[in-house]
Amino acid sequence: MLQAETEKKVLLEVQGLKKYFPVKGLGMFGGTQQYVKAVDDVSFTLYEGETFGLVGESGCGKSTTGRTIMRLTEPTEGKAVYRNVDIFGQSGKQLRKTREEIQMVFQDPYSSLNPRKRIGSTLQEPLIVHKLGQRKDHTERVMDIMQKVGLQLDHFYRFPHEFSGGQRQRIGLARALIANPKLIICDEPVSALDVSIQSQIVNLLQRMQKEFNLTYLFIAHDISVVRHISDRIGVMYLGKMVETAPTDNLIGKPLHPYTQALLSAVPMPNPRIKRERITLKGEIPSPLNPPSGCVFHTRCPFVMDKCKTVQPLNKEVGQDHFVACHLYD
């Protein structure tokens, strides 16, 4: 919200990102080569200091988007321009430098910490990798960050299996923070936690954002969590970005039928309030063989003939509000 008044500075611009996973076909000679279109032509922009939420159901490619930006999987096509440099073209030293500034928090707090390393050495790792500061100062820095994320100092010598999920996620966040990054990609950081712990972690994320002036790419499938933390939200469906808008706009006036369906699925605090629920019929189609035209036309309640053949383009329909749907042509 703060960004509206001040000049927005672009931190990361993702343009036409595609990630196709090859799948071996059946048959003796491998058959025809097929691809799972996990991410298909996704573009969005991250402004400095904001939180961009990425929502969508499982398998829609939101995690793959994050992982590809981190270069944990190689992109098939597209660009990710971080401070005027394309990350996808980097290698070796440059890439390591970029990785110092872009860190990641992972979904599973149980498998994302090395079970054989004490918390202290796990947290020191980024400092050693990027040769930040003197060795003897590392302990102090680690202690500092541990305090900030709400860990106790004697956790320094503990092993990961001695912690609960929420504490582990704090450790995961501390590990991402310690190298002083600019951008943190949070890949479903709270979906593996209990609801009461979720809010703690979300609040912690917000506090850290203020303190370190961070930018978040917040990936989640729970729109109520995303709504709470994000300045802007992007909705993904089957590898495509169907709608992008500032949070208030998206929640208040969702345009894409899929967004409307997603929002109407969020439970209300008061169950007696009558409201219209949009229930989607059918299953999410296979990304191996996505529908022609608009990928959503198989389940869309407002489907038209045009949707089955023509792919809708991303259009700006309001202030910073983009939607890819033929209803708004």
């Binding site: 990785r99 994302s112 910490l113 079970p115 990798v129 995961g172 590990r175």
Partner: peptide
């Protein structure tokens, strides 16, 4: 294939470091 190896890779560690210090001890 564990996430913590991925996490170390995402931090920007070199390949030898991942193999020697993180995979080998396990």
């Amino acid at each position: 294939e564990e996430t913590y190896i991925e996490a170390i890779r995402a931090q920007g560690a070199k390949t030898w470091r991942i193999i020697v210090l993180h995979i080998a001890p396990n």
